[in-house]
Structures are given as C-alpha cells and as structure tokens.
C-alpha cells in the first residue's frame, strides 16, 4: 500500500517537472490561439477564453511569412537532396574500401562537424559574393553543405557499417560488379538510415540562422529564422500572439520529423560518437 502511494506521488512529482520543461511550448500554442486583446490580459491565461485562428490568418495574408516559409522549404530540401546524394556515395566509400588516408578522412569528417560556423563565415561570404550568389537561395544551399555534409556522412557511415558485408559479397560472387551490388543490395538496406539522415539534415538546415542572416539581405529571399526575427524587431509594440503563431508553424515540420525519428535520436543528436 505504501509502495503504491509512493509510486503515485513520485509520478505526480516527475510529471510536474516534465510539464514545467514542456511549458514554454504549451505557452507558445496558447498565446498563438489568442485574439490580440487577450495577449496582454491580467491575470494571464494559458488557455484562451476565446480561441481563434485569426493570428494564423493574419500571418499568412498580411505578412511575408509565406514567402519566408517557401524559401526555407527550398533551401532545406535543396541542401538535403544535394548532401544525401553525395554523402551516400561518400559514406559507402569510407566504410567498404581500403585505401591510404581512409582513417584520416574519417577523422576530418568528425572534425569539420564540430567546426564553428563563424570560422568559415567570412571566407564563405567572400567566395559566394565573388561567384555572384550573394542574396540567392542557392548560395545558402552551398553554405549549408559545410555543416550538413559532415553530419550526413558521419550518420550514414554508422548506418552503412551496420549492413552485413555478406549480402554484398554474395551478390558479387553471383557475378554482380561492385556498383551493381551497391545499388541492388546496399541501397535498399540503407533506406531507413538514409531517410532519417535526410530528416536530420532537413532540420539542421531549417533551423539555421547565422548564414541566413549574413548571406541574404533582401526581404523576399529571407528564410524563416531571420525573417521572423525581423518581424520581432520591426515594431515598437511587439505582437506576441502573431509571433507565437509564426513559431508554431515553424515548429510543425520539425515536430513531424521528430515523431518519425524517435528510434534514431541517439545517432541523430550526434550522441553516437559518445562511446561508453
């Protein structure tokens, strides 16, 4: 009996703390659903008295939000596709072939994954301006490759290393060449790994702020993070409900990926490089 009450109390306590951690997210959703006059009501309420989608409507019709959103989708999808194509080939090369300098390349990948963006920021800006890609979404895709490629390589390497070598060897004994075996045997096996790597790369690019801030100076090419932050700094009276609605819409793609990615979080957070 005492054990059961103890367990119930423990659960109650833990759940209070979990809700406290998740509270900012609930507060974001609550505020996004409020009409303007309720935002600053005292005492503040978590659940709106008159829930409305008016903020979302205004966001999509009166602000450049939809333009930012489209730009973000284009940049994140473009980066993901480019990076995945290159990284699948590269990761397979790293895992299955022996040649001098192989472990050096592997270390380089990990190293560049940890490299601060600001170290590359200035030279990349000069390069991208020099080839006439300043203020273009493609310029941003190129910049994002610098962090998304090392990340994708590192992740795919661990997925491909988990595919049994025997399958490929069997195919090659049956007369398939190396590339045939790669396409017919390895790729289908690697699909789950490729999808989760793609999702993580998408999230990384979707969330990026610094390069987007520096490389894009025209409003119609801005991506979401700098775009929405401009909306914050533009007005004397900040419209928090509108900004929370923007935050909710910005989080939706990430949330969808997150739900699919539950199984691979240890790898995707980069925690698989933590050996225990």
């Amino acid at each position: 009996m005492r054990g059961r009450i103890g367990f119930a109390l423990y659960n109650l306590l833990v759940w209070c703390l979990v809700v406290a951690v998740a509270f900012p997210l609930l507060w974001m959703i609550g505020t996004a659903l409020k009409p303007n006059d309720e935002t600053f009501a005292i005492p503040p309420t978590l659940i709106p008295a008159h829930p409305t989608l008016a903020q979302f409507h205004r966001l999509l019709t009166d602000t450049p939000f939809l333009t930012y959103f489209t730009n973000s989708v284009l940049v994140a999808a473009g980066t993901t596709i480019l990076v995945i194509v290159i990284a699948v080939a590269g990761a397979y090369g790293l895992v299955r072939f022996r040649f001098p300098g192989r472990s050096l390349i592997a270390h380089m990948v990990l190293f560049t994954y940890m490299l601060p963006a600001v170290v590359l920021l200035l030279p990349l800006y000069l390069i991208i301006s020099a080839i006439g890609l300043a203020n273009s979404l493609f310029g941003l895709v190129i910049a994002y490759t610098t962090f998304a490629l090392p990340f994708a390589l590192w992740l795919l390497r661990s997925f491909i290393a988990g595919i049994p070598l025997a399958l490929e060897q069997a195919a090659m004994v049956d007369g398939a060449g190396r590339l045939r075996a790669f396409v017919d045997v390895v790729l289908p096996q690697a699909v789950p790994g490729i999808i989760s790597t793609a999702m993580f790369s998408f999230i990384l690019s979707w969330n990026e702020y610094l390069y987007a801030l520096v490389f894009i100076n025209v409003d119609e090419r801005k991506t979401l993070p700098p775009g929405v932050l401009t909306m914050l700094n533009q007005n004397q009276n900040v419209e928090w409900a509108l900004l929370m609605a923007a935050s909710v819409l910005m989080s939706v793609p990430v949330l969808l990926c997150f739900v699919f990615l539950q199984k691979h979080l240890t790898r995707g957070f980069g925690a698989s490089s933590v050996k225990g």
């Binding site: 997210l25 969330n207 702020y209 979401l224 935050s247 989080s251």
Partner: peptide
C-alpha cells in the same frame, strides 16, 4: 526546436 522559436518563446 529551431533556436529562433526557442528564443521567441
């Protein structure tokens, strides 16, 4: 979560 969203909230 996008850092921009975390910061706004």
């Amino acid at each position: 979560l996008p850092t921009a969203v975390a910061v706004l909230v």
